[in-house]
Design a protein around this nucleic acid. Structure first.
Length: 770
DNA sequence: GTCCAATCCTTTTTT
DNA sequence: AGGATTGGAC
């Protein structure tokens, strides 16, 4: 115990040792949030207040869940298996697998990822001759997910207009289709679990009695359905429920765009009558100037619970700000700074380059590649999402649940086996008219189409038969062969990588079988044992005994089903081998939860960061500001910020003003880097276009700039890309200049004041020097 | 059934 | 610009 609690600061200690009541911990960035969560669990168990089985801890990412498990097992000499620690989706999956009958699901139900979900919707729209101009698949998907996240089924939605009426009908059709195929989407995992518990009193009561302590990480990211699920589990409206220990940071809520509701924090405080609100404001990560910047910036947001980070680490270095002339030059500057950091002894893996959107990485990657600097880009295509891996998975899915139409269509003619669009269309019609799956409709087909489809079915059947007794990794290997996938990619000229990815799957299966505790040689198809290990019996509505879902997955599903679930729920990090010494490139979103010695925040321009689309959304800029807050607080020792006068985006050159966020940072914490001497990077570059001219004039080399203005110049005395100030419109950036000397007019982007065309001989403009 | 050219679309991302 | 998707030609 002494060990457990020592080294905690007073607030952390208070949080860890709170009595068994619901509590809200406002944990600022770098304040030891994960430490508090895990120590709390360990303390509860060690002091005998709860058994491991009485603990449920929920996170949003698999990474966070794993981290928690690792830390816990280093603190306590206990088996973590009895505890429910995982993501919302992972835990719901476990619940539904155990109680699949009560949830009205087939035992081998499969999980659709977003890709599969979209393709199912597209297929459905086509089958019902829906005008996809009027009802785009993506819009419908958004509509459905949104409804589910609010806990609403189609029959509970009220249409406001004919379009919505149709959407609701389509939502209903979609649900029917999923049910027929035996598949569930991500939102469905949660909604089904919610409904299962809401409907089934004895079951709900059982879990309420079991989970005395529910701990929730990143509470600010919960959506309404997740919050309601928690309320149900904690028995909020009922007698004797458990306690929820919620940890979150309203300032780091950056997922509103996908349904997260920060309001859940206030709602939780109110509805659970939280007496224990503890703020963790001591930061152990960053130096003073960095924290001051973060605090100043976030103070511009109104609706906050209020929190200010502090540190004992001293002020440290100022934040370095750099204005580049173009995105290319920005990238070049980053490279030089990164090189000198490396020379100072900072490992490359401790240097992060952050950007608002993925599209920005290309320019930087290009420059890094040219400079020969090793780098890793986060957030690329994940392993289980690669086309060839999805194909192999589809074969496995068909073997486990042949009624999964998405899987069927993905591979029925891949590798090609002479089954064309025509045959598929006929099959589709047959399936629709009988109301059965494509696979089940194959026997109704006649003629040539019938025989080739029949052969495909035979292939799947025989693969299943042949692998009946094989353990999972062996099964995967056989399927790779029998499906013809390996052969197909062997004949393709760019296929080597794909083959490697496919063979990797055998390893993934081996590792999976070991980690999940399936018997080493257990046949992959074998269902769960008839008598699962000890678990309390529960009597359901119909008086039938069911089992508690505390058994390992091995007891509720076959190795194959479990592996497929794993593939959908944990798409697999693309950069599992990212350990090498490389610069870390990622979006600000994916940087959440990470920290680095040195951080570059790039592209700090109006329209990019804050992103232009945020202006249209309610509280959109506030969310962008929180995003910026997250970015700043990633840095331990050194922070860089950069912006550029011009940038290529979607094939067009844009001239942006520097981000408004610069005006919200404390001046004394910023160090505006003096313009550097021009490097010979520019040498030899053609100067034919206005863009190139502008690229030369970053203010760092005024002589050259003036010369060029005079030579090529429009004689107006102003140049494109320059920042100017106007008495009425404020600061703006010159986007274009038309006409010659004396009659020049400039198109100027005044940001919030809009785009204006001003006559340069009349308008009173001032240069804004930085 | 396959291949290539025209067309579309582009915020952030996890499960 | 670039990639993913779709439609038409063979």
């Amino acid at each position: 115990m002494q060990n457990l609690l020592h080294n905690l600061n007073p607030e952390q200690l208070a949080a860890v040792t709170l009595p068994s009541q619901s509590a809200l911990i406002l944990a600022g960035a770098g304040s030891g949030k994960t430490r508090v969560l895990t120590t709390r669990i360990a303390w509860l168990i060690q002091t005998g207040q709860v058994s491991p089985a009485g603990i449920m801890a929920v996170t949003f990412t698999n990474k966070a869940a794993k981290e928690m498990l690792t830390r816990l097992s280093s603190m306590l000499p206990i088996n973590t298996r009895g505890m429910w620690i995982g993501t919302f989706h992972g835990l719901c999956n476990r619940l539904l697998r155990t109680h699949y009958k009560d949830a009205a699901l087939p035992q081998a139900f499969q999980i659709l990822d977003s890709q599969d979900q979209l393709s199912l919707i597209k297929r459905m729209l086509k089958a019902h001759n829906v005008d996809d101009e009027k009802y785009p698949a993506k819009a419908l998907m958004y509509f459905i997910n949104n409804a589910k996240e609010q806990g609403l089924r189609a029959n509970r939605l009220e249409p406001n207009d004919p379009i919505e009426r149709r959407m609701i009908e389509l939502y209903e059709l979609y649900e029917g289709q999923c049910q027929r195929e035996g598949v569930v989407d991500f939102a469905e995992l949660l909604l089904r679990s919610y409904e299962l518990l809401a409907r089934n009193g004895p079951l709900r009561h059982h879990y309420q009695m079991r989970f005395r302590h529910i701990l929730v990480d990143e509470f600010q990211d919960t959506n309404d359905l997740q919050y309601n699920l928690l309320k149900l589990l904690a028995g909020h409206d009922e007698e004797g429920g458990g306690a929820i220990f919620a940890v979150g940071d309203d300032d780091q809520s950056i997922y509103a765009f996908r349904g997260a509701n920060v309001g859940n924090m206030q709602a939780f405080e109110r509805e659970f009558r939280v007496k224990n609100l503890i703020k963790l404001e001591q930061n152990y990560r960053s130096y003073g100037h960095i924290l001051d910047s973060a605090n100043y910036l976030i103070a511009n947001n109104t609706k906050r619970l209020g929190k200010n980070l502090r540190t004992d680490a001293g002020q440290g270095e100022q934040v370095r700000v750099y204005e580049a002339s173009s995105d290319l030059e920005e990238a070049q500057w980053i490279i030089e700074e990164a090189k000198s950091l490396t020379n100072e002894g900072v490992p490359r893996s401790e240097i992060a380059i952050l950007y608002r959107s993925n599209a920005q990485s290309r320019v930087i990657e290009h420059a890094l590649f040219a400079a020969g600097l090793p780098y890793t880009v986060y957030g690329g295509l994940r392993y289980f999402q690669r086309a060839e891996v999805k194909h192999a998975i589809a074969y496995l899915q068909l073997m486990d649940n042949p009624h999964n139409d998405s899987a069927f269509l993905r591979v029925v003619n891949f590798p090609t086996r002479g089954i064309g669009a025509r045959s598929i269309e006929q099959l589709q019609m047959a399936a629709d008219s009988y109301g059965i799956s494509l696979y089940a409709a194959v026997p109704y087909m006649t003629g040539k189409a019938g025989s080739s489809l029949g052969n495909f079915v035979k292939l799947v059947e025989s693969a299943r038969f042949e692998t009946q007794q094989l353990p999972l990794p062996e099964l995967v290997r056989v399927v790779l062969e029998r499906s013809g996938l390996l052969l197909h990619y062997q004949n393709e000229k760019e296929g080597a990588d794909r083959i490697e990815n496919l063979e990797q799957m055998v390893n993934a299966a081996t590792q999976f079988v070991q980690e999940e505790g399936f018997g080493q040689g257990a046949p992959a198809h074998l269902g769960p044992p008839a008598l699962p290990q000890a678990g309390e019996a529960i009597v359901n509505q119909d008086g039938i005994e069911i089992l508690d879902a505390d058994a390992p997955l091995a007891n509720v599903m076959s190795p194959l089903s479990a592996f497929l679930t794993h593939a959908s729920l944990e798409a697999g990090d693309a950069q599992a081998q990212a350990g090498q010494d490389a610069l870390q490139l990622m979006t600000v979103h994916s940087a959440k939860g990470l920290e680095f010695d040195a951080v570059f925040i790039t592209g700090l321009e109006e329209g990019l960061f804050p992103h232009e689309s945020s202006a249209r959304e309610l509280d959109g800029v506030d969310e962008e500001r929180r995003l910026m807050y997250v970015a700043i607080t990633r840095a331990r020792k050194r922070l860089y910020m950069s912006f550029t006068q011009q940038r290529m985006l979607h094939g067009q050159t844009r001239f942006n003003m520097k981000s408004r966020f610069f005006d919200e940072l404390p001046e004394e914490s910023l160090k505006w880097l003096s313009p550097r001497v021009q490097t010979n990077w520019f040498a030899g570059r053609k100067q034919t276009t206005a863009w190139d001219d502008a690229a030369f004039r970053d203010g760092s080399d005024n002589k050259i700039a003036q010369q060029i203005t005079q030579k090529s110049g429009n004689g107006s005395g102003w140049r494109v890309g320059e920042t100017v100030a106007h008495a009425k419109f404020g600061e703006g950036v010159i986007v274009n200049i038309e006409g010659g000397a004396g009659a020049a007019r400039a198109q100027i982007n005044f940001g919030s004041a809009g785009m204006k065309v001003l006559d340069l001989s009349i308008a009173k403009l001032e240069r804004v020097g930085r």
